[in-house]
Design a protein around this nucleic acid. Structure first.
Lengths: 351, 351
DNA sequence: CCTATATATACTCTATTCGAGCATATGTGA
DNA sequence: TCACATATGCTCGAATAGAGTATATATAGG
């Protein structure tokens, strides 16, 4: 992407849409950035690959690995992504899927300014990070450093009750918080639904909605950096999770939400596992991602009953008790079921 | 992190990613095209808005409405989309969501060529198209003109048995069809799963997978246009659905699949309905989208039981029998349930 | 060797959900 | 008035999922 986009006119003849005969006005030329949320589970901890920001670019704030997409070098977006991830981190991505394309220029930028435009395409990649093996750059960081309120492995996180709930309640009571046609759901209701306040159910997939709500309420650092009013009449500032550069935390939130949703209907959990594993290890990995503890016996029954795994015949000893059978992913399930995944139904909750 | 990974070091000052201090190599400049799959249901027929291609651009092939994204004029992608859709068609979009970003340059283009690059971002929009009211450009076309094999409203479509199955079987028997590490699922299995051959279950959400399979097999016009070998040793050519320009049919397939999936866990079906409707009208709309016939009494129970609708108190007479109560969408359901939608479970099918 | 203990795994019980069908209500039109 | 068509309420049985109990088999320490 050339930066002439910032204001030059392009000669001609180039077509915007093949066969459509349209032309690209200069103003529409932009650069494409690819962002990768690379996710793994290390010792029962869900982690994402983070690179360290330069000192001159937002301090030492973490960033997701990212690079430009060069359409001359790579025929597909995913191909470009894989190439520079390998160059930059030494990782060979296995599973990768596109998440979302962001073009907002930071919410404090006025229309008509002349800064260069970048469209970032977020990707989710799942990998198996046994040790730091092969990693030449970047560090694995727990998700929950960026999103502490998402960590329900030891019950409802303290930070929700102590920090988030009172601030969101205060934010919801501001005069502009009422329901309007443009804002069909009131602030208080959004807070309740997103964070499971006042007895509402916690939905572990709403990771992005929660982050965006905190952003709107001015409770995450990114919001302040983007020029939103600070912590809404609340005297003391608090840091809710580690910030990241630009909108990287938003992309990571999207990635986490997508992962949590996807393992329920696609066997992507096995992208995070070694070839052989015990059912308890599988359960621990699922719990690392989803949060709540699952009923062990039922988990076994569901996973085996769904045909997701098959015993290898070996056992793993030294587990501290009776040796556990080793299992492997049963690929044939892809041929048998339309939506194979780890079914973990929520407790029956009526309004 | 900086982009030295991309090979070049940047002189200075201009920034690729705000706060990250990176620069964009010229080669990465692209234009952004926005494509909208605008979906409605007209008289129990699911339709998409199509515009007619120019004579010099692919003949009279249909296209989805599309336009460039101009980052100077619009702060967000969705804002830009809404603006030119209004200009171009007269429609004010209600619900819109991003689908996918395509950057493939048509599979016949060699790396390194100098044609202009366009990234197309596909959007799904749902609207209520009562009459052609307000439409200044474009026509509503049934989905099933483009995807006749998706129309299961009158049982399994003939075209699958008569045209698709034998051609896919022939394609699967070619020598290169075997399973390899790069191709973990054999052609025959993919065909079976996608199209429900040999007794496999039909999954109405796999719209994109089916289209891509037909593309790979050289059975849709777009594949031939892109330079893929023609109908794989099959003597007679047949047109499987109406083609569209470039990859628009792929975007529409993505939109249809997303719509079919989404109405099951989000109340988006009501974007396609008038304010008041009978439960049977609602069922007909759902069936227009999903295909198979639903059990009427259970549909009522599920929809009412889920709190998705509430009676208005009025009835609609002249239905040909007992008058039907009118209902409206019950917005409060958004506050009560994490994933409200039209639950229509598939018949229990074991492998 | 024996026992305590920790984990693995099998089995049972029960409430809920969902597909399917029957029965009844209330209009329209011949 | 009666046939008919659609709307709507109710019941039944199979499948499923949450939860608990019981049993198997290793390790660790005396």
């Amino acid at each position: 992407m050339n930066m002439e986009l910032s204001g030059r006119r392009k000669p001609s003849s180039e077509k915007l849409l093949r066969e459509s005969g349209d032309e690209v006005p200069d103003a529409t030329a932009v650069g494409i950035g690819l962002n990768a949320a690379i996710i793994a589970v290390l010792e029962d901890e869900p982690v994402a690959l983070a690179v360290r920001g330069d000192a001159d670019s937002g301090g030492a704030t973490d960033a997701l690995p990212f690079g430009p997409f060069n359409p001359r070098e790579h025929r597909t977006l995913e191909g470009g992504l894989r190439a520079w991830v390998r160059d930059q981190t030494g990782l060979d991505l296995g599973y990768a899927e596109q998440l979302y394309t962001f073009a907002d220029r930071g919410r404090h930028i006025e229309p008509g300014d002349s800064s260069p435009h970048v469209v970032s395409i977020g990707y989710l990649a799942l990998t198996q990070a046994s040790g730091q093996h092969g990693l030449t750059n970047g560090v694995w960081r727990s998700w929950y450093q960026y999103f502490p309120w998402e960590d329900w492995r030891r019950g409802r996180p303290e930070i929700i009750v102590r920090e988030i709930e009172p601030r969101l309640k205060a934010w919801a009571e501001q005069p502009q918080a009422a329901t309007t046609p443009q804002r069909p759901i009131a602030r208080a209701d959004r807070a309740r639904i997103c964070f499971g306040l006042d007895g509402a159910a916690w939905d572990e997939e709403k990771v992005l909605e929660r982050f965006e709500l905190l952003y709107e309420a001015g409770l995450v650092d990114e919001a302040l950096r983007d020029g939103r009013s600070a912590a809404q009449n609340w005297p003391d500032r608090v840091r809710l999770g580690l910030p990241m550069q630009t909108d990287h935390r938003r992309i990571l939130a999207t990635a986490i939400g997508r992962t949590r949703a996807k393992i329920k209907y696609r066997p992507v959990i096995f992208e995070l596992m070694p070839d052989e594993f015990t059912l308890y290890e599988l359960q621990k990995t699922v719990e690392a991602i989803l949060g709540p503890h699952l009923h062990k016996q039922n988990f076994r029954r569901l996973v085996e009953g769904a045909g997701l795994v098959e015993p290898t015949g070996d056992v793993k000893t030294r587990t501290g008790g009776r040796p556990a059978k080793l299992f492997r992913f049963r690929r044939e399930v892809l041929l048998e079921r339309p939506a194979p995944g780890v079914r973990v139904s929520a407790p029956p909750s009526r309004s």
